[in-house]
Design a protein around this nucleic acid. Structure first.
Length: 281
DNA sequence: CTCCAGGGATGAT
DNA sequence: ATCATCCATGGA
């Protein structure tokens, strides 16, 4: 099937560190959306896909987001202007709640490449097998599937100390004590508080899950990359800027689509060529 | 080899 | 409330 997808860059979106399981397959990508195996490839302004309906593709890749309007809502500063130029067509996608939460629990102190490896191990061992265009596209294991595993099972997927947290959170979700779907109706503050009660979830992971799975486009995750960007671009050569000050700045400065601004700054910093640690010329 | 990563939990100031 | 330390693993 095909679909119009103007103002969208598929490979850039899938390589921006918000989702970790899509893999190159021929001229496109193989992956899963929830329980279904999916192939998707971009041809100019059109998206060619199989495995799910056009409605699912539109929702997952957030093709209904008014990207131009979102970008216009950004504050006008050099760092953000450069990031926006670099990130054209990058969208914040709508991920299934559980797999987004689980994946970001495994992300702590890990590089993107390794998070991808963990996601692949969990999907290959414990997910449902799918095959699209001769490529594997396993789904992420359900909460109840993970809940029945043991800590050594998860450590065998290279989770290290994160294994205990993922297991405990899976059991809370599987039992219904943590109802991720029902939480979608909560206010921003309450949702963040609920997420932070889960083992292995702090402010950073909670904000990632809010942004990538609950469509809270204001949520502003601060990781080591973003912290570096903020200090370098928005607080140049000022020492003693506390984490609390940075957080307060982000809440007010970047506005209602702060999460988009954050993602653009993150992707630009990570892929834009500037070496981390070295000052800009 | 060393360095560091889309951090969180815990205990000490 | 803020700061320091430890946690486990492998890519770069």
């Amino acid at each position: 099937m095909e679909l119009e997808a103007p103002d969208f860059d598929l490979s850039r979106t899938l390589d921006s560190g918000q989702v970790f399981h899509w893999e190159k397959c021929g001229d496109g990508f193989a992956g899963a959306i929830g329980p279904r195996g999916v192939f998707v490839e971009q041809r100019g302004k059109r998206l060619r896909f199989s495995g799910v309906t056009a409605e699912t593709i539109t929702s997952y890749f957030a093709l209904d987001h008014q990207l131009a309007k979102i970008c216009r809502s950004f504050p006008d500063d050099p760092a953000l202007t450069a990031a926006r130029d670099f990130c054209q067509g990058l969208r914040i996608i709508r991920q299934p709640r559980w797999e987004c939460l689980a994946t970001f629990i495994t992300s702590s102190m890990k590089q993107v490449a390794h998070i991808r490896q963990i996601s692949r191990a969990l999907r290959t061992r414990y997910g449902q097998r799918h095959r699209v265009k001769e490529c594997a596209a396993p789904s992420f294991p359900t909460p109840s599937r993970v809940a029945k595993l043991t800590e050594p099972d998860l450590r065998a997927c290279a989770l290290g100390y994160r294994a205990k947290n993922l297991l405990a959170t899976a059991r809370l979700v599987a039992s219904g004590d943590a109802d991720l779907e029902q939480w979608s109706t909560l206010s921003e503050e309450t949702l963040r508080a609920r997420l932070c009660e889960l083992p292995g979830v702090g402010a950073k992971v909670a904000n990632c899950v809010m942004l990538f799975a609950y469509e809270r486009l204001r949520a502003f995750p601060i990781d080591v990359w973003i912290e570096r960007v903020l200090r370098q671009k928005y607080f140049p050569n000022q020492q003693k800027v506390t984490a609390t000050q940075l957080r307060a700045f982000c809440e007010t400065y970047f506005g209602e689509h702060g999460g988009y601004a954050q993602q653009y700054l993150f992707h630009h910093a990570r892929k834009g060529g500037a070496t981390p640690g070295t000052a800009a010329p």
